[in-house]
């Protein structure tokens, strides 16, 4: 069965860039969703969970760190892997968001190889 992906970023352009970079990495998803912030992402998850969420941190309405905490409270999303994609890259922040339930971290600027490295372990 194919995998599903949700990209959460307040920049529509960045969502397109991430989608393009994921494709360039060679990873394939049967279903892809987009959300502009944490609130939108939670609303879309009510309509169906996804296997992987790529999530920005600095967003209006609900930031990425709060979204991670909220997703981890949803039983249906127990198997959902969350990879943060952000310009923020302090070790303190990375440790904190991983402790809250994120499964990985990709810093902007990024390359297709970085997505390949971080997402491949969750594709099988």
């Amino acid at each position: 069965m194919g995998k599903s992906l949700m990209i959460v970023d307040d920049s529509a352009t960045m969502r397109k860039i991430i989608m393009r970079t994921v494709r360039m990495s060679g990873l394939e998803f049967d279903r892809t969703e987009e959300a502009g912030n944490g609130v939108e992402a939670l609303e879309k998850l009510k309509g169906g969970v996804v296997d992987i969420i790529l999530c920005d941190i600095n967003m209006p309405e609900m930031c990425g760190t709060d979204l991670v905490k909220r997703v981890r409270q949803i039983p249906d999303c127990n198997g959902t892997k969350i990879i943060m994609v952000s310009t923020e890259s302090s070790q303190e922040l990375i440790d904190s968001v991983i402790a809250d339930g994120a499964n990985g971290f990709i810093c902007k600027p990024f390359t297709p190889e970085k997505f390949q490295e971080k997402l491949s372990p969750f594709m099988n």
């Binding site: 960045m14 952000s86 890259s89 302090s90 810093c107 902007k108 600027p109």
Partner: peptide, 12 residues
């Protein structure tokens, strides 16, 4: 987004 990514690296 370009400004965002540049300042992210500056912050580091």
């Amino acid at each position: 987004e370009v400004a965002n990514m540049i300042v992210g690296r500056v912050k580091k």
